[in-house]
């Protein structure tokens, strides 16, 4: 037998690889594919088989290298064949792939949404979280101590009028319970359980007998913040609310206080934030009334604190440009799907 130089064997392999590549990427139907298979991969006299015969003529010391090269090309050609077969099976023709109408709809994948009020609550809770406030929750069916007395709203206070609250008579309770009219109730519960320092936000549903209209609903959501630490002043309150407003609205937002009246804070203020050159109402706030601190067993001469409350519906309506807050409770997915939180939560 004549010796076949390794170079010649390699060259033959490369030629085979190139030709197979040309043919197999161009074949367009089963007949051509079968022909190509016989030509290149035929068991008896296919080109691969032919070249393999040449392997025997390579010098003994070159055999391992030649064998490796042969195997690599053989595998490559088999892959080319498999690709061609797959392409033909899929009905595509080479060089003339049928273009799709890219404007046709994609396969639908529907994502849901969290409710715009939830988006707003999450955002508020996240911002307050950066400021060290922890979210707390409490019961919606409350007793009169937590909803009124501990909040310095005595029995004769008009806020306790039966027409202004949703009272619930429960046989097991000594006095009627009620659907809480504010989430400050949770603050009382936390203060009763824990010692200062405290930074909490209580949030959830609250209930007041308002006739439903564009700006009122008998059920709505509140977020209330409470901070109790020695040495707390209104300057801390203003600074925290400014940080909050800046984070919520973006940019450096100023806030201002207007005197107001709430039974459980003294001094009490309405808080405005400056938005697009206008002062808009943000919520109520104030220093926790000493009577409230005493009611939960704190010493008002030792600790002080502030509280603030935001109406979630109101800020959501403003943030999203919703004119009628009743829309938040209509639960039509065409409405709900419009609210993308844009990664802000």
């Amino acid at each position: 037998m004549t010796n076949l130089p390794l170079d010649a064997f390699t060259a033959e392999l490369q030629r085979l690889h190139a030709e197979a590549g040309q043919v197999l990427t161009a074949v367009a139907d089963d007949t051509a594919l079968e022909l190509a298979r016989v030509t290149f991969l035929g068991a008896k006299s296919g080109r691969i088989r032919q070249v393999q015969k040449g392997l025997g003529q390579v010098a003994k010391e070159d055999k391992p290298a030649a064998g490796r090269q042969f195997n690599a090309v053989k595998t490559a050609v088999e892959e080319l064949f498999a690709d061609a077969q797959q392409r033909i099976d899929a009905g595509a023709s080479p060089g003339a792939v049928e273009a799709v109408d890219v404007s046709l709809p994609g396969t639908p994948l529907r994502l849901g949404r969290v409710h715009p009020l939830t988006q707003t609550i999450r955002r508020v809770a996240a911002i307050m979280g950066y400021l060290g406030f922890e979210v707390v929750e409490g019961p919606e069916v409350e007793d009169q101590w937590h909803n009124f007395e501990a909040l310095a709203i005595p029995a004769e206070h008009p806020a306790r009028d039966p027409l202004d609250n949703f009272y619930i008579s429960v046989a097991q309770a000594a006095e009627p319970l009620l659907l809480r009219s504010q989430t400050s109730t949770v603050q009382i519960r936390v203060m009763e359980q824990r010692e200062p320092p405290l930074r909490i936000v209580s949030l959830g549903r609250v209930y007041r007998p308002d006739t439903a209209d564009a700006t009122h609903y008998p059920m709505f959501h509140q977020v209330e913040g409470l901070l109790i630490e020695p040495g707390t002043t209104m300057a801390h309150l203003k600074s925290v609310l400014r940080s909050f407003a800046s984070s919520f609205l973006g940019g450096d937002v100023h806030v201002r206080f207007r005197p107001s009246f709430f039974p459980f804070t003294e001094p009490s203020v309405e808080v405005d934030m400056e938005w697009n050159g206008r002062w808009i109402e943000m919520g109520g706030a104030g220093m926790v009334d000493p009577a409230v601190l005493e009611a939960v067993g704190y010493d008002p001469d030792v600790v002080s604190g502030f509280a603030f409350g935001l109406g979630v519906e109101r800020i959501a309506a403003r943030r999203f440009g919703v004119a009628d807050i009743r829309d938040f409770y209509r639960n039509d997915v065409r409405f709900l799907e419009q609210f993308s939180d844009r990664g802000q939560v």
Binding site: G132, E134, S239, V255
Partner: peptide
Amino acid sequence: YDCVPENVPLAAQPVQR
């Protein structure tokens, strides 16, 4: 209340959900 400062820092505090 305009005399009340609005830039008093608050000490950082860790929070857990």
